[in-house]
């Protein structure tokens, strides 16, 4: 028995903000693994909303592994680092683990420069947040 929670961001964001960019963004929770599809651009502007959305999902589903999927992410600055560190800490209280997947070269550079790669292991390619399988 597999349990899915689909959580469309479309309803959560007001239309005048980067709505189009984030259409179809999904949170998928399966067997204790929550996969979060990260937005195209992660900065201070979207940080608060992203933080609240992830925390809400962490509250309602018993997450053992939190996977940040960066398939769509083209830009991230230090505001994104704050969001990731904060979520790791929250999950740490309940003993869960964290992983980041599908980082492009740029996001990888941000992970390296900030030292975030020591806190969040960069995982091998796996099932994408949208449920597609990239076959790697």
């Amino acid at each position: 028995m597999v349990f899915y929670v689909f959580f469309s961001r479309k309803r959560l964001i007001d239309n005048d903000r980067k709505g189009d960019d984030r259409m179809g963004q999904e949170y998928q929770c399966k067997n204790g693994q929550l996969i979060v599809e990260m937005p195209k651009e992660i900065d201070h502007h979207c940080a608060k909303e992203l933080r609240e959305d992830i925390d809400r999902m962490l509250e309602i589903s018993h997450v053992k592994t939190l996977v940040f999927d960066f398939s769509r992410t083209e830009f991230m600055d230090s505001s994104g680092i704050g969001v990731l560190i904060g979520r790791c800490r929250n999950l740490g209280y309940t003993g869960g683990s964290v992983q980041a997947v599908h980082l492009n070269e740029r996001v990888k550079k941000i992970f390296m420069v900030s030292g975030l790669s020591k806190l969040i292991p960069i995982g091998a390619a796996q099932e994408k947040a949208g449920g597609r399988f990239d076959g790697e």
Binding site: A47, R51, D77, S78, S79, I81, G82, V83, I85, G86, V113, S114
Partner: peptide, 15 residues
């Protein structure tokens, strides 16, 4: 409290 990472200037200097 805003979960700022404190890495802003470090990033400017790094990049």
């Amino acid at each position: 409290e805003l979960e700022r990472s404190g890495m802003g200037f470090a990033f400017m200097e790094a990049f």
